[in-house]
Amino acid sequence: MIVCHCTQISDHDIRAAVDWMRASDPATIITPGKIYRALGKRADCGGCMPLFLDTMRGCDNLAVPPILRGLKANRTEVSHEGRRESHRVSQRSSAV
């Protein structure tokens, strides 16, 4: 089935690109932009994006790699990028 008429991308092309990317780098995050690049094409009008995303989500190899799952949940909360609050520019008074 043709998913993108502008660039002639089929559902088979999307699945093959996802499988190829996952095989070449198991830890990669697969995005629509990466799929377009892997196919040597780029998005044109964007009308296909809902069907494109549905086709991507239907791929078995699209899942987030196990090594990247739960990183946010396991991360300890570090506020202000490790700086004290007195060093935050947005909190300083503007009196000079």
Rank of each mutant, 00 (worst) to 15 (best):
W20K: 15
S10Y: 08
H5T: 11
A95H: 12
S79P: 02
G82A: 06
T55A: 13
A73E: 13
R37H: 10
P32W: 04
V78D: 00
C4H: 11
A16E: 15
C45R: 00
A38G: 09
L39Y: 01
M21I: 13
H12N: 14
D54H: 09
P66M: 06
G82W: 10
R22P: 06
D54Q: 14
R42F: 02
A17Q: 05
E77S: 07
P50S: 03
I2Q: 11
A27Y: 12
N61V: 04
A17M: 05
A16W: 03
S24Q: 15
G47M: 06
A73S: 09
T55V: 11
P50W: 05
A95K: 14
S94C: 13
E77M: 07
L62V: 07
C59D: 03
Q91L: 13
T7I: 02
S79W: 03
L39A: 04
R92K: 14
C6S: 15
N61D: 14
I67H: 03
D19P: 02
G70T: 01
A95E: 14
C45V: 00
C45T: 03
D11T: 05
D11K: 10
E81Q: 08
S90N: 10
V64Y: 03
P66H: 12
G58L: 05
G33L: 05
A63E: 13
V3Q: 04
H80Y: 13
I67C: 01
E77D: 08
R57N: 08
V64C: 09
C6I: 01
R42Q: 07
R88P: 00
S90G: 13
D60V: 09
I30W: 02
P66W: 10
A27E: 15
A27H: 15
S93K: 13
A43Y: 00
C6R: 15
A17D: 07
A63V: 10
V78T: 04
A17P: 05
S10P: 11
I67S: 07
I9K: 11
C6W: 06
H12M: 14
V89A: 11
M56V: 00
T76K: 01
R15W: 12
D44R: 08
R92H: 08
G47A: 08
G82L: 07
P66D: 14
P66V: 12
M1D: 07
D44P: 00
R22G: 06
E85T: 12
D19C: 10
A23V: 03
V78P: 00
V18H: 09
A16I: 13
S86Q: 08
I67M: 03
M49N: 03
R83H: 09
D44T: 06
R22F: 04
S86G: 07
A43C: 04
E81I: 07
C6M: 11
L62T: 05
R75F: 02
G70P: 02
I30R: 04
D44Q: 10
A23E: 13
R15P: 01
K72G: 00
M21P: 11
T76H: 00
R37L: 14
A63K: 12
D54F: 02
P66S: 12
K72E: 07
G46D: 10
S93W: 01
T31D: 02
R92S: 10
M21N: 14
P26V: 00
R37M: 09
